[in-house]
């Protein structure tokens, strides 16, 4: 940061290229988040026991079981809940891990010279639209697939293309548009919240670097958890909507 003012960049900074693939600081951070979760999964896997679980396994079991319980309750179908469980829980874990990694020392402060500028080596993962759009696309495809799988392709298509009456046709059209809008709302909500948090903390640090950012950082920890919950919760609700027959819903 040669300049005196705040430098706020909406795009992730380009670090270097690997085989023609641009590597950005958010990409490195997302690899880090995945690595952390994979490592935790392997450690947990080795410690899982059938009888008399102790310590952390109890917590993990409690969380997973209550998550599954919520899904089962919302969807009203254990098999379907088991199917969407991995997607929703993985999105939640990934988003929350990525959001909280933002507060690790070194994220944002360790810099890298990419040939033209000096840029942070790591950047909060969800301040990259590529990440949030990727998550949204996966979420929406998962929702559509579940919808088709549960109520059938024909019934599912009838939600969007209905020629019985002009009114129903328009409702179908609105459904289709809202389906597309989900993609945008999913990705920009997460991106906007986390990016705004980053900017907020940056601004506060600019005012008074020592104590002022602390309450805002705490707040952002909450926001990181809440955004992950919202993303996962919306996925669950959209699955519910997609797997419900339209005729019955009226």
């Amino acid at each position: 940061m040669e300049g005196k003012g705040l430098e706020i960049v909406i795009t992730p900074e380009h670090l270097f290229d690997v085989f023609g693939m641009p590597v950005t600081n958010t990409l490195v951070a997302s690899l880090g988040a995945v690595a952390v979760l994979v490592a935790l999964a392997f450690v947990a896997r080795r410690k899982l026991v059938f009888a008399s679980p102790r310590g952390i396994q109890n917590v993990v079991e409690l969380v997973m079981e209550s998550a599954l319980g919520v899904m089962e309750e919302v969807l009203g179908d254990r098999k379907l809940a088991m199917k969407v469980f991995p997607f929703i829980v993985t999105v939640f874990l990934f988003v929350v891990t990525a959001n909280w990694m933002e507060f690790l020392p070194g994220v944002g402060s360790v810099t890298f010279f990419n040939g033209e500028h000096t840029v942070p080596f790591l950047r909060s993962v969800n301040t990259d639209l590529n990440v949030t759009i990727a998550l949204s696309v996966i979420a929406v495809i998962m929702v559509q697939t579940m919808g088709v799988a549960v109520i059938g392709g024909w019934n599912y298509a009838k939600k969007f293309v209905n020629l019985k009456s002009p009114l129903l046709f328009f409702i179908g059209l609105i459904e289709a548009i809202s389906e597309a809008a989900r993609l945008v709302s999913f990705s920009f909500r997460l991106f906007g919240n986390i990016f705004a948090g980053e900017v907020l903390i940056l601004v506060m640090s600019y005012f008074m670097p020592l104590f002022l950012p602390v309450p805002f950082m705490l707040f952002e920890v909450m926001v990181g958890l809440i955004q992950a919950t919202i993303f996962a919760g919306l996925m669950l609700i959209f699955v519910k909507v997609a797997t419900t027959h339209h005729e019955e819903a009226h």
Binding site: I10, V38, A41, F42, F85, P86, T90, I133
Partner: peptide, 29 residues
């Protein structure tokens, strides 16, 4: 900052995470 290569990379990244967590955490648990 949207780049189809980065987007694709994130999709793959997430898919790997999904697979690993499913295989080594959710399923056994």
């Amino acid at each position: 900052g949207i780049d189809w290569r980065l987007f694709l990379f994130q999709v793959v990244n997430f898919s790997i995470l999904l697979f690993v967590l499913h295989r080594f955490l959710y399923k056994p648990l």
